[in-house]
Amino acid sequence: MKWIVLLLLEICGAYAGTHKLQYFYTATSGTPNFPEFVTVGVVNDQQIDYYDSNIKRAVQKAQWISGAVDADYWNTNTQIYAGNEPSFKASLGILKSRFNQTEGVHTYQRMYGCEWDEETGATDGYDQFGYDGEDFISLDLKNLRYIAPVQQAFITKHKWDQNRALLENQKHYYTQICIDWLKKYVDYGKSTLKRTVPPSVSLLQKSPSSPVTCHATGFYPRSNMVFWRRDGEQVYEDVEHGEVLHNEDGTFQNSVHLTVKPEDLDSGRYECVVQLSGVQEDFVTKLERSVVKTNHGNTRRTNPGADGPEGSGSSGFIIGAVVGVLLLVAIVCGVVIWKKKKDAKKGFAQANTSDDGSNSSNNTPPKA
């Protein structure tokens, strides 16, 4: 599986009942205008911090965490990230040698974290490494061993599998430390992480011969379904689903495209349905020519449903930019606009950030 796809799916993969704490590390070479080392911490779909080799410090990204931790928390995270930086740079050099590469752009990436199902209590952890956009090595937490999908990773697998202290530390981190911190973060940010925001829905069509797009935007949480129905039954043929994308305000957007005949626009048989996690009622928009926004003279808004908000007001499609693999980890969660700091601090009790002598990100691997 391509790492660019994996990162997109994992960063944005939280769903109802399940919470995720994740860290993304990226070391690069051959990119003079990009930091050589970057880290991003994410809880569910919300970035909580950022570090890179240029600024040399951990920077808070989620305002809801500001009143819950003290200055020592950020100092410790800075030390953890700074401690990982030389190891990742060295590992990148090792892998370039193993792959017999000397020039060009290269990346060494790590994605690790844990999941907690609030409803069932089930937990899980994962630790995955990638090189130049491909899987390199990953932790099998259940059997406490590493899996090497490529020959160049066999040396690393052998070295790490023989390090019993490393494996036991990994088990302790993913089954206890990471889970404990995830629960803390969910509690700190519950007003943000557990909120529900209904979507605005628009029907869009570029030209009379183009598919009709049902575009839902401004909703939260990410977990949703957008689909077309005909005569009350979900339509699967002539339907293309889009990807869930981030909005700048921390909400999401999604779309589904339906190819229909011109006469079907006024048949009354079709309707777009948006289902949002945490909301029992569906948001239903009937397909009618009069409410379809087009590029040929009609810019009228749609009504998302009986109780839903008005349309987004955009005169065209909201298009998600294609982000390069080198920039993805640094910016995919960095455009969130939060409420004022004083609102985020309300109701928080300061955390004990030294419960076990480490922060949630303290899980440093050895060199490859």
Results as ranks from 00 to 15, higher is better:
residue 36 E to L: 04
residue 261 K to N: 11
residue 173 Y to S: 02
residue 257 H to K: 13
residue 131 Y to A: 10
residue 83 G to D: 05
residue 44 N to T: 02
residue 14 A to C: 10
residue 85 E to M: 11
residue 50 Y to W: 11
residue 129 F to K: 11
residue 308 G to L: 04
residue 107 T to L: 15
residue 90 A to R: 13
residue 38 V to L: 03
residue 203 L to D: 05
residue 80 I to Q: 11
residue 136 F to V: 05
residue 239 V to A: 02
residue 301 R to A: 14
residue 295 N to L: 14
residue 341 K to F: 09
residue 95 L to T: 07
residue 231 D to S: 13
residue 58 A to G: 05
residue 179 I to R: 02
residue 362 N to G: 05
residue 230 R to Y: 10
residue 258 L to G: 04
residue 38 V to F: 02
residue 84 N to A: 15
residue 73 Y to E: 06
residue 22 Q to Y: 03
residue 89 K to E: 10
residue 201 V to P: 00
residue 366 P to I: 10
residue 179 I to H: 03
residue 174 Y to Q: 03
residue 205 Q to W: 04
residue 106 H to Y: 02
residue 261 K to Q: 12
residue 26 T to G: 03
residue 260 V to C: 07
residue 345 K to E: 15
residue 337 I to Q: 14
residue 132 D to Q: 11
residue 264 D to A: 14
residue 167 L to N: 08
residue 71 A to M: 10
residue 266 D to T: 12
residue 240 E to Q: 13
residue 70 D to K: 05
residue 41 G to D: 08
residue 123 T to N: 05
residue 170 Q to N: 12
residue 268 G to L: 05
residue 2 K to G: 08
residue 235 V to C: 05
residue 233 E to H: 12
residue 224 N to D: 10
residue 26 T to Y: 02
residue 192 T to A: 14
residue 268 G to I: 05
residue 75 N to T: 09
residue 29 S to D: 14
residue 136 F to L: 13
residue 255 S to Y: 13
residue 356 D to G: 10
residue 163 N to W: 01
residue 37 F to P: 00
residue 291 V to R: 09
residue 148 A to V: 01
residue 318 I to L: 15
residue 263 E to W: 10
residue 164 R to K: 15
residue 246 H to I: 00
residue 61 K to G: 01
residue 220 Y to V: 01
residue 83 G to M: 07
residue 89 K to Q: 14
residue 289 R to P: 02
residue 170 Q to T: 08
residue 18 T to Q: 13
residue 90 A to Y: 09
residue 79 Q to R: 15
residue 10 E to P: 00
residue 298 N to K: 14
residue 211 P to T: 00
residue 266 D to A: 11
residue 263 E to K: 13
residue 209 S to W: 07
residue 96 K to E: 06
residue 198 P to D: 07
residue 195 R to D: 11
residue 2 K to T: 06
residue 114 C to Y: 06
residue 157 K to M: 13
